[in-house]
């Protein structure tokens, strides 16, 4: 049996066209320039929008819905437990990063980073607590010290302790 082609080109083409149209409308809706050609801030974006729609259509015409459907089916069929684990790891990383962003300026660099790194290491390295906590502690303190004192980059201080 011939192996059937799978790709996401149909979907990619659709997304491209939608991005192109939305971006094109937004470009047209931009405020008019008070001087010179009133449309001048919009012209270049409008060209990009047209290009995006054009290439989206080309991609769409060169692919078909079935191939993309098959690609999704194939993913479902061939996803191993390990793949699922990697997806969960990515999801956990994104979630941790968002929390990290919220904590960063509120609890200071050292504490936020210590928490983030401990969590990340638990994800990748497993439950080797001593190793993980030690690495996170050293990383957050060393980076804080190097950036604030050696590189002159101001990182958020820890409240109360002011370090």
């Amino acid at each position: 049996m011939e192996k059937q082609k799978t790709n996401f080109d149909f979907l990619t083409g659709l997304i491209t066209i939608v991005i192109g149209i939305v971006y094109g409308i937004m470009s047209y809706m931009l405020k008019r320039s008070p001087m010179g050609n009133p449309l001048s801030p919009s012209i270049f974006p409008l060209i990009l929008a047209c290009g995006m729609v054009l290439f989206g259509i080309i991609l769409l015409l060169r692919s078909d819905l079935e191939t993309t459907k098959r690609a999704f089916a194939q993913i479902k069929a061939t996803t191993t437990a390990k793949d699922k684990l990697s997806h969960q790891m990515i999801f956990a990383t994104v979630a941790a990063a968002i929390i990290y962003a919220f904590l960063f300026e509120r609890v200071g660099y050292v504490i936020a980073t210590f928490l983030f790194m401990s969590f990340m290491l638990t994800i990748t390295n497993g439950k080797k607590w001593l190793m993980n906590l030690l690495t996170s502690l050293i990383f957050s303190i060393v980076v804080y010290y190097v950036f604030s004192y050696l590189l002159g980059v101001i990182l958020p201080k820890t409240p109360f302790l002011n370090i």
């Binding site: 960063f104 660099y109 980073t113 790194m117 990340m120 990748t124 390295n125 990182l155």
Partner: peptide
């Protein structure tokens, strides 16, 4: 690598903030 990847992530964030 299990320890180095989180460190790369940590550096990516501090670099962005810098």
């Amino acid at each position: 690598a299990k320890i180095l990847y989180p460190i790369v992530l940590g550096l990516a964030f501090v670099g962005t903030y810098a």
